[in-house]
Design a binder for these strands. Structure first.
Lengths: 187, 187
DNA sequence: ACTAGAAGTCAACAAGTGATTACTTAGAGA
DNA sequence: TCTCTAAGTAATCACTTGTTGACTTCTAGT
């Protein structure tokens, strides 16, 4: 077996290129809008390899998107830490190119095959970790308040970035948000 | 000209049936998932009448959905009134059948034709009225905080209703939400 | 160098989509 | 009653999409 230093005829590297291209296309267009042909073109590989390596478009979606739908990495530290981190991260600007699993979630939630997968994954790897992280009463209510606030911010800043927001207003929003998040986290 | 008491051969009534069916199908499946054939079937009319009366699928979408994307009717009264009304309305349960323009927004935002229309409409008839309603400093920041919170709640309770929430937790959430909303509304 | 099997390519199918064109039917006004 | 126009219908086009089966090419192990 030869090590994969040569670019051609390396199945693992090809699968990886497909995954990366799929992430970008799913991010930009959602599940319905993304076509296997565009993914193949962007990855620079033949169309049929998608089905060979991932079984189907949905199979590719599961491998490319679902594992990255995870809130847990952002929940470490004190409530103040978490609140500050989340406020900084979700009140952001910029065209948000590349890949963001939560953007893909919103843009694919309507699809009858991808939607349920996304919802289950979100429940297990975003809502649950958030609930488990909280202390005190009404964990689920507080977690829901936080999660819905963040979800709305994804919509506002990562999916509708064309609506402008003044720098000063953005700073104010960050402050207000951080306060709300901290209070909900602390209970 | 005969008054439209007879059900058949009434263009206005037919257009209305198309609009009602379109609202339901767009609500359930989003712009991409909705087919003109299903809309026609559900309306009990011939497929070609959609294009005759509305020009195109997108034209139908504009007439059926966009006018209902409006937050203004919910913003009358004191900040306390508004906060209570919104908390009651957005922390809801149930399968959410029928038609909800904000659900359609989320489920159609990925489409390159419908998306921009929805964003512009949302800006003009949800964000702007909310900003204009506020008093005091940082109107835009506070309006954004409120709007994103509500948007997330739409996602949570109207699009992912399968994730359960205990009745007591729901009451607690309603309280927390109402407090946050009132503070953001009052400034 | 030879060859078996993996990696990659090619052409095409079957299903579904929005839209159009030509045709048929009903009903209000003469 | 008889038209003539609006309302409704049928058939189909042009196109896209996911997927598949057969074919070709490269390369690792002998």
């Amino acid at each position: 077996m030869k090590n994969a230093s040569n670019g051609s005829r390396n199945a693992q590297a090809t699968a990886e290129r497909i995954l990366l291209a799929a992430q970008k296309v799913f991010h930009e267009k959602g599940y319905d809008g993304a076509t296997t042909r565009e993914i193949a073109d962007r990855a620079g590989i033949n169309l049929t390899l998608i089905n060979r390596y991932f079984g189907s478009k949905l199979g590719l979606f599961e491998k490319a998107v679902l594992p990255h739908l995870d809130l847990e990495p952002l929940l470490s530290g004190t409530p103040s830490d978490v609140a500050q981190r989340l406020a900084e991260l979700y009140v952001d600007t910029g065209p948000k190119e590349g890949f963001d699993a939560f953007v893909v979630l919103v843009r694919s939630i309507a699809n009858p095959e991808a939607g349920p997968l996304l919802i289950r994954r979100l429940e297990d790897h975003a809502l649950r970790p958030l609930i488990d992280r909280l202390e005190g009463p009404n964990k689920e209510a507080r977690a829901t308040l936080i999660a819905t606030q963040l979800a709305g911010l994804v919509l506002r800043f990562r999916i509708m970035p064309q609506i402008p927001l003044d720098g000063q207003e953005r700073m104010a929003l960050k402050q207000l948000l951080e306060t709300n998040l901290r209070e909900a986290l602390e209970g």
